[in-house]
Simulated scan of single mutants.
Amino acid sequence: MTVSAQVGNVATAGLDWTAASTVVAAIAAVIALFVGVWPIVTARRTGEGQARFWAKVAVDDLAVQELNLLAATKLVTQPEGYADSWQYDQVAKCTATVSSAILVTLAQYREHLPKPAEGALVVAISILAVAQHRRTFLAQLAPSEVVNLTGDMVWYDEVREAIHPARVELAKWVKVELQQLDEGAAQLAKNLRHAALVERQLWQQANIAEARTADAGQRAPNQ
């Protein structure tokens, strides 16, 4: 019994309970800190992930808008800026792509964006909102009516230039290649001019056929 008591005393004496409790308390504090901070870290990572996702979507969306706006400015080839009703309709289709919806969604995660991208985003949202509002005043042209689009072309070119920095900064942040749009816009404008020409020819042919039918109807009673 004496030996057992001595062994127990030695074991007890070898353990520093004060130091052990300090270590345990420190570990508990670290765990508590981890449990408290981890949701914040996770939320921030999730927020940044969402920001990068919508930034990539915005880059493509802005590219489509720029492409169509650039095509619209190249569609009318008359030096004076005059367009017939069919060319006007094609210009209107190009400008119908103008929208700030994707950028507004991205703006919800603006705290994760680099400052240059955030600033360019604000400018793009503002100018696109104005452009969207202005589209509500598009005129309804009668077939074969002609309108001067010089002022409109200048305006939409300004819109395109204003949203371009946002595409540049966002593409830089998410590390995607910036698409060059000049060639594609020129081809799109050419295709739209051809579509306008075809529609005009179809209208002319329909008018000729209608006139012949009416003329034939007038002659029939006299025969």
Rank of each mutant, 00 (worst) to 15 (best):
residue 133 H to T: 10
residue 47 G to M: 03
residue 13 A to L: 11
residue 154 V to Y: 06
residue 157 D to F: 00
residue 77 T to N: 07
residue 78 Q to F: 02
residue 142 A to E: 15
residue 98 V to K: 04
residue 208 I to W: 08
residue 6 Q to P: 01
residue 113 L to Q: 03
residue 135 R to G: 10
residue 129 A to K: 15
residue 190 K to V: 00
residue 104 V to L: 12
residue 91 V to L: 15
residue 105 T to A: 07
residue 153 M to K: 12
residue 178 L to V: 09
residue 185 A to Q: 01
residue 170 L to K: 04
residue 58 A to S: 14
residue 20 A to F: 13
residue 185 A to T: 01
residue 19 A to D: 11
residue 44 R to Y: 09
residue 8 G to V: 04
residue 119 G to V: 10
residue 113 L to G: 02
residue 15 L to H: 08
residue 49 G to H: 06
residue 178 L to C: 01
residue 57 V to A: 09
residue 120 A to V: 08
residue 71 A to C: 01
residue 212 R to I: 07
residue 106 L to F: 03
residue 146 V to D: 07
residue 152 D to E: 09
residue 60 D to Q: 05
residue 82 Y to F: 14
residue 132 Q to G: 13
residue 30 V to K: 11
residue 103 L to A: 06
residue 201 Q to I: 01
residue 137 F to C: 07
residue 47 G to Y: 02
residue 15 L to S: 02
residue 164 H to V: 00
residue 217 G to E: 10
residue 205 Q to I: 00
residue 8 G to F: 04
residue 126 S to D: 14
residue 58 A to G: 03
residue 124 A to P: 08
residue 14 G to Y: 13
residue 209 A to H: 06
residue 213 T to S: 10
residue 52 R to V: 08
residue 186 A to E: 09
residue 174 V to D: 02
residue 222 N to Q: 12
residue 8 G to I: 06
residue 170 L to D: 00
residue 138 L to Y: 09
residue 32 A to L: 14
residue 81 G to T: 13
residue 197 L to Q: 07
residue 15 L to M: 09
residue 111 E to F: 08
residue 98 V to A: 14
residue 38 W to L: 09
residue 222 N to V: 11
residue 33 L to P: 04
residue 111 E to Y: 08
residue 26 A to Y: 11
residue 15 L to R: 09
residue 75 L to W: 06
residue 218 Q to M: 13
residue 36 G to R: 10
residue 85 S to A: 15
residue 104 V to S: 12
residue 88 Y to F: 15
residue 15 L to P: 00
residue 88 Y to L: 08
residue 60 D to W: 02
residue 150 T to N: 08
residue 21 S to C: 07
residue 66 E to D: 03
residue 109 Y to N: 10
residue 215 D to V: 05
residue 68 N to M: 03
residue 39 P to D: 02
residue 70 L to P: 01
residue 176 V to R: 03
residue 149 L to G: 04
residue 111 E to C: 06
residue 181 L to P: 00
residue 5 A to V: 05
residue 26 A to W: 10
residue 107 A to P: 01
residue 9 N to S: 09
residue 186 A to N: 05
residue 165 P to K: 06
residue 42 T to R: 13
residue 223 Q to H: 10
residue 65 Q to F: 04
residue 77 T to L: 14
residue 142 A to C: 07
residue 144 S to N: 15
residue 165 P to A: 05
residue 160 R to D: 06
residue 100 S to Q: 11
residue 86 W to N: 12
residue 144 S to H: 15
residue 155 W to A: 09
residue 116 P to L: 11
residue 86 W to Q: 12
residue 129 A to T: 14
residue 61 D to G: 01
residue 48 E to V: 02
residue 131 A to D: 06
residue 135 R to Y: 11
residue 214 A to K: 12
residue 57 V to M: 06
residue 190 K to L: 04
residue 132 Q to N: 10
residue 42 T to M: 08
residue 116 P to G: 11
residue 75 L to Q: 07
residue 217 G to C: 04
residue 166 A to I: 03
residue 210 E to F: 02
residue 161 E to F: 02
residue 22 T to N: 13
residue 139 A to E: 12
residue 201 Q to M: 07
residue 178 L to N: 01
residue 147 V to F: 12
residue 147 V to I: 15
residue 155 W to I: 06
residue 99 S to T: 07
